[in-house]
């Protein structure tokens, strides 16, 4: 369980997050949606202890993020940021293997290697395993990074716009992999998504943010209504249904 209490964050005097209180249970896909600058990525960074807390508290399975050793947290929670990794001349396999670093500190066991191979196959980068990252396309690189994050084998995955650079095939594949992970292993994914229909189709819970506040929080059916979407994104859009899920015609 992730518990966030009275979280506030200001950047140079401008409030970025205001009075966030959240409880996220284990197991499931939680989508963070909202317009640019709503504070989604900041919230994710604070949970992942990439930035210092100003006020408020965050606990991962009861462990406070500020004082728990980094390695202990890294075995429970993995984060994938946008543009957060500067790997150039590492091969895809070397990068994905680093996902096991919190568990083995670089000394791979046969189990670690098996998990790496599994992740390479799962995200369709096994054929690229010996290639250097700098020789890959943006989408291939993104898949390698996702494979590394999965390979960390944590109960919680924090993904900041993981569908960036992915084509439809791989975007759908990633969402389905997350869905399986949540259903079969009761793992938890917290994802910042810009494509609201991906959230509609795959998320168990959608948290909509605006101006650093939580504007709406609930199931896709509860959050994806004309009025709520207008309050969050600032314009009215049609909402229909497809395959038993809401479908937002946000582009019309």
């Amino acid at each position: 369980m992730i518990r966030i209490e009275d979280l506030n964050l200001a950047h140079g005097g401008t409030p970025v997050l205001r009075d966030i209180n959240l409880t996220i249970d284990r197991g499931g896909i939680i989508a963070l949606v909202g317009p640019n600058g709503a504070g989604k990525s900041s919230l994710l960074s604070l949970i992942a202890r990439l930035r210092p807390l100003q006020t408020g508290r965050i606990f991962i399975d009861g462990l406070p993020v500020t004082t728990t050793p980094g390695r202990e947290l890294a075995r429970r929670m993995a984060i994938l940021r946008q543009d957060g990794v500067f790997a150039g001349r590492l091969t895809v396999r070397e990068l994905v293997s680093l996902g096991r670093f919190p568990h083995n500190q670089g000394r791979s066991t046969p189990q670690d290697r098996a998990r790496v191979e599994e992740a390479l196959v799962q995200f369709g980068v096994a054929d690229l395993a010996e290639r250097f990252l700098e020789t890959l396309s943006g989408g291939q690189r993104q898949r390698a990074l996702v494979a590394m994050t999965f390979c960390q084998g944590t109960d919680y995955l924090l993904l900041d716009e993981p569908l960036n650079n992915l084509d439809m095939f791989h975007a759908r594949h990633l969402m389905q992999s997350l869905r399986r992970m949540a259903d079969e292993e009761a793992r938890t994914a917290i994802i910042v998504l810009h494509d609201i229909n991906q959230a509609a189709a795959y998320a168990d819970r959608i948290i909509a943010m605006r101006d650093g506040r939580i504007a709406s929080d609930g199931t896709p059916g509860e959050v994806l209504t004309v009025d709520t979407l207008a309050a969050v994104f600032g314009y009215r859009m049609q909402v229909t249904a497809a395959a038993g899920r809401p479908l937002v015609l946000h582009h019309l």
Binding site: A48, R49, L50, P69, G70, R71, E72, L73, A74, R75, A78, I79, L80, R81, G84, V85, F86, A87, L90, E94, L98, G99, F101, P102, Q105, G106, R107, Q152
Partner: peptide, 22 residues
Amino acid sequence: IADRLTVLSLGREASIGLGLDY
């Protein structure tokens, strides 16, 4: 300490995410 340095070379955020004492 080569593996730690490799993780370090990925940058601050990736290092912290992997539990390295950056």
